[in-house]
Design a protein around this nucleic acid. Sequence first.
DNA 1: CGAAACCTTGATATACTTCAAGTTGAGTGG
DNA 2: CCACTCAACTTGAAGTATATCAAGGTTTCG
Lengths: 239, 239
Amino acid sequence: MSMSDKRLRIACAECSSRGDSFFACLDHSELEKLEEGKSCIRYKKGQTLFYEGTRPMGIYCINSGKVKIYKLSSQGKEQIIHISKPGDFLGYRAILSEEFYSASATVLEDASICFIPKEEFQGLLHENSQFFNAIIKSICHDLGVMREKVADLAQKSVRERLAGSLLMLKETYGIDGDKSTLIDIALSREDLANIVGTATETVIRLLSEFKKDGLIELDGKKIRVIKPRELAKEADFYG
Amino acid sequence: MSMSDKRLRIACAECSSRGDSFFACLDHSELEKLEEGKSCIRYKKGQTLFYEGTRPMGIYCINSGKVKIYKLSSQGKEQIIHISKPGDFLGYRAILSEEFYSASATVLEDASICFIPKEEFQGLLHENSQFFNAIIKSICHDLGVMREKVADLAQKSVRERLAGSLLMLKETYGIDGDKSTLIDIALSREDLANIVGTATETVIRLLSEFKKDGLIELDGKKIRVIKPRELAKEADFYG
DNA sequence: CGAAACCTTGATATACTTCAAGTTGAGTGG
DNA sequence: CCACTCAACTTGAAGTATATCAAGGTTTCG
């Protein structure tokens, strides 16, 4: 597939994900101006948007698909920090702190993603304080979320963390069905282990325990949550 | 000791910690205006500035002393997120994200700390963009630091994390001496365990191993780093 | 000086990792 | 469409880092 095949024309003004994004507060002229420097590309599963330690050149805005943000250890083991979905922005942290990327980003599910050059992004920050404030607020919120994650990793068992991660995934990617909620995201057991911070085998064993106890159902790779309340108990401390 | 005994008059303009702080970029009139709403109090070791889950009323600026920022698990176990020193600001994350405090803050070493009401802080943010940018940059940097911490907790052994924490403490609180660097901060073994994310006994055992291997010296509670390079090897992966 | 908090060491328990081997599933080309 | 292949998944067995429990020693401080 040639480069031109992957190129897309996605106008922010018509983007179905814009309402959920930082761009929700942009006016018509701001949206039009964005189109100039913007480029949109279709990515296949497994493709990497950027690597930890490299210089950020702009921000990425997810139109469709899902992207994992992760750090690699010196052993090559992956720790997934976050999973981004349509409407999410990537890469602004590094631009605002004037640092290199602190994590890598790889596509989990085929995606359409727009790239906005650094200069345009910074211009918008200056011109639209509502946009700026939304970004700031989100970063400060994320910092709180990361503190929570640090405490969980230090204090909770793998079992508790897996239960917690399943509930988190259910909140974000859940599709309610009859008597159960499907976690609709293409995660391998290894990915799930890299979210929880454990070994793949451990995830598999614990999932089958949760299944045995009737908390979840396993539908191939996909997971259905049957008893979220019970799962929440598992996620807490020896509750 | 009555309240009035603890009250202090510390002018930001004369504060020895200002040069290292976000207030370094404030001009004379901005500093004068700050004095109005400001209040400065002397805190003893063990006193708590604010609790996780409560509403932030303003920001704290450390003139002298040290403060631990931590989260408590449902079991009451503490995870120390950060240790703040003179010149550091506390509490602005929660104000910017319009959330409750995500962690608690307790004094580790007797401290003089100024409180600046939320409104004055927000006023400054609007008036002085250099100040605002410094805050934003710091928060974005911290987010990167927390990601690193998450990856370390998920991927490194306790031994590696302890070595890493000792080096981090050495960087921030180290006083170079002849052939060794003293980590000059009043940390109990339990505090150190709560930084590393492990049990107190494990810290003690690992410290005595590091001592046996000549990497550190134990001077009562105080720790001296003798071989930082070797310690850095321990901090990395099975290196 | 005495009590309390902190530190240290030892013994035991276990959650989790790692290694190994077998099974299933998805994608590809003949 | 089937067979081949590689990756992903699963289960088992064994090893280990670390937590937990217990008890004695030491420092700190009112």
